[in-house]
């Protein structure tokens, strides 16, 4: 049985469709990523799955329990951590752990065990009496994660858990998530960091309240299997875009950081026409080589095809 089953889940805010008939399953022990720009509907979806927000229509079951019918039943079985690391700043590390453990109804012995576990996991041993507001972002984030899993939930929801945290802390955080997943915990995570999405077993790309693409990271990248992507490095990328856009062998071009990505039409493998066109117009290209499409390519492609722009 899947850990999470979602069918035609919809949420309206007045006339605005935040989530539009979304359906997917999340398997037990899977790290399932929700990727999308701000306002794509990721947070609204996760809030519905956690029982914080009533669905307008459609159904969702979490751990076998219908979220619409028994949101409190769902809450007992899940862990939730949001982008705001909702800890009590005026409480110490230890007091926060004890408080949340108490809310989840842990008895004294379990609470002591889990407190030790959470302190260890967050790397906060010896700092039990530090006020939470004095902790740096990365520590706070790991403490919040520790507090969210005190009651050993089988399903964990993370809503943009790494916002505002430095790259090293982010990497450490993902190590913890991987470990949880290996122990059988289902992790449902939203993010708008594309590099983070690569950690997920499966990804749903969300755009304008709909799931625009869903699959494993390599499946999503395979969308491009038949089309070669050429990365062009040049000092004048804007001119290069204009020069290459109307070549018959080119499907489309896009700026990619400081470089230019050129999608060739299916079956096309030659870079010579590109080189000739650029040389003909006197645009100097430093390099011109085939690259593996990244998730960002996939994301941009999905968004473009959906007729929108990524934020």
């Amino acid at each position: 049985m899947p850990a999470v089953t979602v069918r035609d889940l919809t949420r309206r805010f007045g006339p605005f469709l935040a989530v539009d008939h979304v359906s997917f399953d999340v398997e037990q022990g899977e790290i399932f990523g929700f990727l999308g720009s701000n306002g794509a509907g990721k947070s609204t979806t996760i809030r519905m799955l956690c029982g914080l927000l009533k669905p307008s229509s459609g159904t969702a079951t979490v751990g076998g329990i219908d979220v619409g019918r028994d949101p409190e039943g769902v809450k007992r079985r899940i862990g939730y951590m949001s982008q705001r690391f909702s800890l009590y700043e005026l409480l110490t590390v230890e007091e926060n752990i004890t408080f949340f453990g108490g809310l989840y109804g842990l008895d004294d012995r379990t609470l002591a065990e889990r407190r030790a576990f959470a302190l260890d996991m967050a790397g906060l041993k010896g700092r039990e009496r530090t006020l939470t507001r004095d902790l740096a972002g990365g520590w706070r984030q790991r403490l919040a994660l520790g507090c969210a899993i005190l009651h050993e939930p089988r399903i964990l929801f993370l809503d943009e858990p790494t916002g505002g945290v430095d790259p090293v802390s982010r990497r450490q955080f993902w190590l913890l998530i991987n470990r949880l997943s290996e122990s059988g915990v289902t992790v449902f995570v939203t993010t708008h960091y594309l590099d983070e999405a690569e950690h997920c077993h499966r990804l749903a790309l969300m755009h304008s309240g709909r799931i625009a693409a869903l699959g494993t990271v390599s499946e999503l990248k395979n969308v491009f299997a038949k089309r070669a992507v050429v990365e062009v490095r040049t000092a004048s990328p804007m001119e290069a875009v204009r020069a290459l856009d109307d070549l018959p062998s080119v499907e489309k071009t896009s700026l990619f950081g400081t470089a230019l990505h050129v999608w060739l039409r299916p079956g096309q493998r030659a870079t010579e026409p590109l080189r000739e066109r650029l040389d003909g117009l006197g645009i100097h290209a430093e390099s011109l080589e085939f690259v593996q499409p990244s998730l960002e390519d996939v994301f941009m492609d999905v968004v473009e095809r959906a007729g929108g722009t990524a934020a």
């Binding site: 029982g51 914080l52 809450k75 939730y80 949001s82 909702s86 009590y88 809310l103 989840y104």
Partner: peptide, 13 residues
């Protein structure tokens, strides 16, 4: 305002 209410709302409180 602090966001802790949302955290309380996902507990069985």
């Amino acid at each position: 305002e602090l966001g802790t209410l949302e955290q309380l709302n996902v507990t069985p409180l």
